[in-house]
Design a protein around this nucleic acid. Structure first.
Lengths: 196, 196
DNA sequence: CGTTGACTTGACACGATGTCAAGTGGCAAT
DNA sequence: ATTGCCACTTGACATCGTGTCAAGTCAACG
């Protein structure tokens, strides 16, 4: 039987990484810590992931799968009109950010020194930007895009306002609740990128 | 003559740090690189700064002094009415960010592992927030603050929209020019936090 | 002339990543 | 039952950057 060519060790490592980062979002989280949490030796981690960066990248992908974020975003985008799509996106994405934040933060940190991590992050951000672009297109098509706003500019603006960094500043640094974040970002977007 | 109790070595180190970070905003920039750039031995750097974090902190303070940022912000705030103060702040601060960005980026990076760096950064951000708070107070006093915006919320929002992270996303990541950044942030603030 | 102080040289400890080599133990095919 | 494979373990080691320590150089200044 080759039902599972790889046993659940790989997944155990991913879950251990996730758990540790979630427990202490600021902490260093060494490879040895992760191994201990997964109940295996440090070297065994390297049998599954070539290095720390790839492990973190795999962890984010694992999270994407666990919460079917793609599907959720797709549903939000397809629901009702352009403005509803925008609001839906803010809600879905705004609920997702807090869940991935600890892992995203770690990935952002090694991005500075690791090329692969930088590319992986870039990929994710490009995906978010693509969604923003679709929403702006919807707004434009329905005449709901602010008149004095170039479409490319609107995409950049939307992408920045819903970015993880912005979320971080408003919640972690300013103490906003998840509800406050969503409500005020929604209002901010309404007043700045949609037509009055 | 004790005209200079400390010769210019300290300043040479600060300038070397600045120069290296500016040349290659993404690069690692080791202590040995800085020493070489300053034309001294690696150990000599430690005669002036206890560690990497303190060196980076001192470098940012040095930058603040070189460009008298405090004075510029003060001038902008005192010029004309509340809306003029807001615009002036965006201009002064928006011109300053690109200059300090390379050093700020390095400081942000070690913030994760270094307590002192985290505190130093916190201090700087608190100072920016204080300015945002004053501007919101001015807007409120002159009736220029958007009616459906709590004052605290407005401060957080303003602070986030003019943050270095937001600047980073719009210029470095989205390719905006300095002029585009200033113009669109100004417009964004007008449409979202001031009364129509 | 001698002392002081900034700087140099060279060595070292430490912590974390990543690599290498030699096991160990279970499970499966023949 | 024996053989061989495979995931994993154990332990050692190279590397790299930070920070420390100790001894020495050299010029200025009394």
């Amino acid at each position: 039987m080759m039902s599972s060519s790889e046993p659940d060790t790989r997944v155990r490592i991913l879950k251990a990484t996730w758990a540790l980062l979630e427990q202490a979002p600021g902490a260093p989280t060494r490879m040895s810590d992760i191994a201990k949490e997964a109940g295996i030796s440090r070297q065994a981690v390297y049998l599954h992931f070539p290095n720390r960066a790839e492990l973190l990248i795999a962890t984010t992908k694992h999270l994407d799968e666990v919460y079917g974020i793609d599907k959720q975003i797709e549903e939000a985008r397809a629901s009702g009109g352009a403005r509803a799509a925008l609001d839906g996106f803010v809600e879905v994405w705004g609920s997702y950010i807090p869940r991935i934040y600890p892992v995203a933060k770690a990935l952002l940190a090694i991005r500075a020194t690791d090329e692969a991590a930088a590319l992986a992050w870039q990929d994710r951000m490009d995906a978010v930007r693509a969604i923003c672009s679709e929403i702006v297109a919807l707004l434009h098509a329905s005449g709901d895009l602010s008149a004095d706003l170039d479409r490319d500019i609107a995409v950049d603006l939307l992408w920045t306002l819903v970015s993880i960094r912005t979320w971080e500043q408003l919640t972690v640094e300013s103490g906003w609740s998840e509800e406050q974040y969503q409500a005020h970002i929604r209002r901010l977007l309404h007043s700045s990128i949609t037509a009055s």
